[in-house]
């Protein structure tokens, strides 16, 4: 390897650059996911009941909904409270009450939070079927759009990661191929004097593994440095949403990155050397 220092450096650098991009992108996707799940977990269902539903029936409904699968929490918002909330926007309870002819026209409603945001549509549908429920509202359009966006982002993310990763393999293969190519004479002489293929492959495999480790180690270090710096500056990715601060996930991603780099290096070596073994 000392003979091919420059080419080895080039291979390690190409691993480092692609793995760095991959790492940055991975964290970006994680953050988008995190952001989406933050938004999604804030989504709630408001189940409006018929006006004048007796309180016992309301409580019964509350219990019923609580037992629906996927429901995390049910909060009863009595019509009095609802009225108070609204009246704040209309210059006080008295005024609003006089404007509505002395009666509270609002129904009771139940605020429902769910475990998994994806189930919200089904749960809302189930609640709407319950007797006594007038109308169900969960910001259908906004939520559907958000889900669609998140789904799309996930696919895009997965696709881009795949693209970037295969780009990395090709780039690394090409670079390692250069180092193998520069030693093709050595390899063919090895074959001529009766070296076994595995004997010939072994050092190249180790070299690829090593270059991959070095390159992706550098990349992981850079990603880690930049990310923790951003965290320390409490950088906000979008508007008010903070960066995902999950050391375990970060560690896992970085280790994954290093592992992938080593794997790609070793694989690149083995693939590159194949054609030179056909003597």
């Amino acid at each position: 390897m000392r003979r091919n220092l420059w080419m080895s450096l080039a291979a390690a650098a190409s691993v480092a650059v692609t793995m760095f991009l991959l790492g940055v992108f991975l964290l970006l996707v994680f953050n988008l996911n995190y952001m989406a799940s933050q938004l999604q977990s804030n989504v709630e269902i408001a189940a409006f009941l018929h006006v004048d539903t007796p309180r016992e029936v309301v409580q019964h409904l509350e219990a019923q909904i609580k037992h629906l699968p996927g429901v995390r929490e049910v909060v009863l918002v009595p019509k009095e409270e609802g009225f108070r909330k609204i009246s704040r926007q209309f210059g006080g309870e008295e005024e609003l009450l006089s404007a509505t002819g002395g009666v509270n026209p609002l129904p009771d409603y139940l605020l429902v939070r769910v475990n998994t945001p994806e189930e919200i549509r089904d749960i809302a549908g189930a609640i709407a079927q319950l007797p006594g429920v007038e109308k169900v509202n969960y910001g259908q359009e906004v939520v559907e759009r958000l889900f669609a966006l998140v789904r799309w982002l996930r696919w895009l993310g997965a696709g881009l990661i795949l693209l970037l990763a295969s780009g990395a393999v090709v780039l690394i293969m090409l670079t390692i191929r250069l180092t193998v190519y520069s030693r093709r004479q050595e390899i063919s002489i090895m074959k001529y004097v009766g070296a076994t293929d595995s004997f010939i492959r072994w050092p190249f495999f180790l070299e690829g593994l090593f270059l991959g480790l070095v390159g992706s180690g550098l990349a992981a270090g850079a990603v880690y440095g930049i990310y923790t710096w951003l965290l320390s500056r409490s950088f906000n990715l979008f508007l008010f949403l903070p960066l995902l601060n999950d050391p375990a996930l970060l560690l896992k991603s970085l280790l994954g990155l290093i592992g992938a780099g080593a794997g790609v290096g070793a694989l690149g070596s083995l693939l590159s050397i194949r054609q030179f073994l056909k003597v």
Binding site: K191, Y192, V193, G194, T196, D197
Partner: peptide, 13 residues
Amino acid sequence: GREIALLRRTIGM
């Protein structure tokens, strides 16, 4: 594979 390598050890080129 390996047998080819062994054959070549008996033939100098």
